[in-house]
């Protein structure tokens, strides 16, 4: 009889099962168990074999090496929220997902591999140029998270691979200003209608030496454009105001004109305008709220 559900003891076994059967991993189950539920008293049914990876210790750590922070795929949102190693916006995004009971189950690996346009963690991660490490029984490879997520519910994960960890590189200079905002369907326990993560580095002369911004829930995948960001990099904060309208127009183009375009666009515009005008005042606080 064909197994429908495997429970591997360790990562090696999981990778072997994955290679042999293509079984889909269930980590926290908060996406999969819900999308395949069949009602009270009925066992959820999947169109493919599955394996439970909740118990894999190898996937449950958060560590720093050579200035890069690795969040392993099985780390829960709660673990990320309380991990001091993890950059502010990622912690903040994790802390605003669902409620405590969800954050104790939901994993970063699941959030990324689920590739929902409304998923919260990819937004700050992509802004931070995070990479993913994919492992299989035969090897491993890395790529930019932005490339890994192909589109709504689509990733470049291959049939024999698992996501092992997410690697967040250190920016050249520490960011001087940070912004994160999630607009949910309500004030807690809510899916994003829109989220935005932004960061700027202003040097001692008032020159913007780095700027990044990414939007979630505003298109098929996270919206970010290095080219648009570069239009204000190198600028002195004093000249930001005059360049702002052109920048905002250019940014607007990278948002997808999908459902509720007006609301997402205008809110994004207001948030960016607000963040940058705060930046141009060069306040002492890093986190802009």
């Amino acid at each position: 009889m064909v197994e429908t559900c495997y429970i591997p003891k360790d990562l090696a076994e999981a990778l072997r099962i994955r290679k042999e059967t293509g079984a889909h991993p269930i980590a926290g189950g908060t996406d999969l168990m819900v999308s395949h539920r069949r009602g009270t008293g009925v066992v959820p049914k999947f169109p493919w074999p599955v394996m439970i990876i909740t118990q894999l210790k190898e996937l449950q750590k958060i560590e720093e090496e050579d200035g890069e922070v690795s969040i392993y795929a099985g780390s829960t949102c709660h673990e990320i929220e309380v991990a001091e190693l993890v950059p502010y916006q990622v912690r903040k995004a994790a802390s605003l997902m669902g409620a405590q009971s969800l954050r104790n189950l939901a994993t970063i690996g699941g959030n990324i591999c689920n590739a929902s346009p409304k998923g919260d963690l990819p937004v700050p991660l992509i802004m931070l140029d995070a990479r993913v490490e994919l492992v299989s029984a035969t090897g491993k490879r890395q790529m930019l998270l932005d490339e890994f997520i192909d589109g709504p519910k689509r990733t470049k994960l291959q049939d024999d691979e698992l996501l092992a960890r997410i690697i967040i590189p250190q920016p050249k200079a520490p960011f001087t200003y940070l912004w994160y905002r999630k607009i949910g369907t309500r004030r807690a326990n809510a899916i994003s209608k829109l989220s935005m993560s932004a960061a700027a580095t202003v040097d001692t002369h008032g020159i913007i030496v780095d700027f990044r911004s990414a939007n979630g829930a505003s298109g098929p995948k996270v919206a970010r454009s290095r080219a648009v960001e570069e239009t204000i990099i190198g600028l002195s904060v004093d000249r930001l105001a005059e360049r702002l309208p052109a920048f905002l127009d250019a940014y607007d183009v990278i948002l997808s004109p999908q459902a509720m375009p007006q609301y997402r666009r205008s809110s994004t515009r207001r948030m960016l305008e607000f963040f940058l005008s705060e930046v141009s005042k060069r306040p002492d606080t890093t986190i802009i709220e």
């Binding site: 908060t30 819900v34 439970i52 118990q55 669902g98 405590q100 009971s101 969800l102 104790n104 189950l105």
Partner: peptide
């Protein structure tokens, strides 16, 4: 039945979780 309401909450290893999303295979031990 979809993790939204908390009526099915229990403590798993002292942490609150919603049991409507948890497969038995992850409860071992």
């Amino acid at each position: 039945g979809e993790g939204e309401c908390g009526a099915c909450s229990v403590l798993k290893d002292s942490k609150i979780i919603t049991t409507c999303m948890v497969p038995m295979g992850s409860v071992q031990g």
